[in-house]
Amino acid sequence: MARTRAWPRGLRATLSWLHLWVGLVAGTVFALIGLSGSVLVFHDDLLQWQHPELTGHELRADGDVLARILREWEPRGLGSVHLPEPDGVPTWQGYFGDGRRGYFDPATGELLLMRSADDDWLMWLHDFHIELLGGDAGKQVLGVVGWIAVGLLLTGLYLWWPKAGRWLAQLKMHRGPPVRRWLSWHRSSGVLLLPLLLLATLTGVGMIYHAGFRAVLTGTFGGDAPPAAPQRAAPEARATDWPRVLALATTALPDARLTRTGAPDPGSDVIAFRARSHGEWHPNGRSLVYIDRAGTRVLAAHDATGQRLGARMTEAIYPLHIGSVGGAVYKWATALAGLLPAFLLVTGFLFWRRRRGKR
């Protein structure tokens, strides 16, 4: 009987020790990632504030302009082009194979801005947030830190959990003495905002281990992989009629908005588009449209809103993480969640320091 009673106390002490020391070490990385995420929630707003030449353009997607951009910039590494957005940057956005991003006038196709992580602080912050500036290796390290962060949040909840009837007392934030103040601020803020922070952390981990999360979600709730692109060889020397292609693509899914495209592969007659159907959370959409180079035939169309629940849950991971769901309220809530790891780190450190000084 004595052993049975001693075990929970030993378990609690062990978890408390791990929570403290792992939190002080891995929590530092977690805090920096959270702070960078809070800034990146407002990426487009900050970008347009920093570069006013990207603002004030009439929203338009002209096939001739798109053709000019691809003709001039594909030989220089342009991979895909994002169409002007009604709720984002109103210019063409080009994504290059080396990580650069180009912004082109929607009316003329002239280059307005070229950015890279080497000369743009927002892109540098983005690379830090998603891969710790370390490529695939950094991304894997970040994945491990993400799982550790989930463990810290759950052990913190366990250590906080009060006896029956003491819920409100356990949530109270005290002004003093210092040891009690920092502990109560640390615990109460962590518990009150736990759902929001846990969601942000799990969706971040889900983006790193996307294939595994998709397999679990689709296996549990149903869902298939998106349809493969049709295979169709282009007639020799056939040019792409971008005005006709763009016009036809907009009709393939009447309730969708085209978001991204690129030049066809050499020898292929297939032009691929990403699209966002009405009701999709993903800002770029997961719907697909395929058109032939001549712009005379819709080869295939996939409406992502018609997928089974598991597939839709998988595609909700990214928009939930970046705060693009639910308008301004959720956007600011996501930014708040990014600030919380730093607050927990500071209050946890101050509690440890004060308690240590009393010994």
Rank of each mutant, 00 (worst) to 15 (best):
G267K: 06
E280C: 08
K331Q: 13
L339S: 07
L154G: 12
W332R: 02
D45Q: 15
A6N: 12
I208T: 13
R71N: 10
R353N: 04
L253N: 10
D45F: 05
F351T: 12
M313V: 10
V191G: 06
Q231Y: 05
L196T: 04
V179D: 13
A31D: 10
F42D: 10
R180Q: 15
L168D: 02
V25C: 12
R60K: 07
R297D: 10
W332T: 09
D120Q: 06
F42E: 08
M123Y: 04
D136C: 04
D45Y: 07
W21L: 09
G135V: 02
W352K: 05
D269M: 01
L78M: 04
P227W: 13
D119K: 00
A26D: 11
W17K: 03
R12M: 04
Y330D: 02
T55G: 13
S38E: 08
I291K: 02
S80Q: 07
Y209P: 00
G306F: 06
R286K: 15
D44A: 12
P8T: 14
G56I: 00
T218D: 01
R166S: 14
S188I: 03
R71P: 03
L320E: 11
L54I: 05
A2N: 13
W167T: 00
I271M: 12
S80P: 05
G285P: 06
P227H: 12
L112Q: 02
M114T: 12
A335N: 06
L193E: 11
V145T: 00
D241G: 09
W121V: 04
A26C: 11
D64L: 14
L258H: 00
H51E: 15
D45A: 14
S277A: 15
G310C: 03
L198G: 07
L199D: 01
L196V: 10
L183C: 06
R181N: 03
L142S: 12
L152C: 05
H302R: 05
T4W: 11
P178L: 15
Q170D: 11
L248W: 03
M313H: 02
R115V: 10
R286F: 10
P283E: 14
P86R: 06
L202C: 15
I69D: 06
G267C: 09
L340A: 02
E74G: 02
L122A: 04
A249Y: 01
L168N: 10
Y330S: 01
G338A: 06
A275N: 03
S189P: 03
V270I: 07
A239R: 13
T218L: 03
G109Y: 12
T28E: 01
R181V: 08
K163H: 09
A252G: 13
L157K: 02
P195D: 01
D105S: 13
L168A: 13
P227E: 15
G327Y: 14
G135R: 02
P266Q: 15
S268F: 04
A294D: 10
L159G: 07
F349P: 00
Y318V: 05
L54Y: 02
Q50T: 15
P227Y: 13
D120A: 12
A256S: 04
G223A: 13
G156V: 05
S268Y: 09
P341C: 15
L112G: 09
A2C: 03
F351G: 11
W73M: 11
G267W: 04
F104T: 09
R355A: 06
P226K: 00
T305K: 07
A200V: 15
M207T: 05
G143N: 03
S287H: 04
L20V: 10
P283C: 14
L168W: 07
L193D: 10
M173A: 09
G190F: 07
D119Y: 01
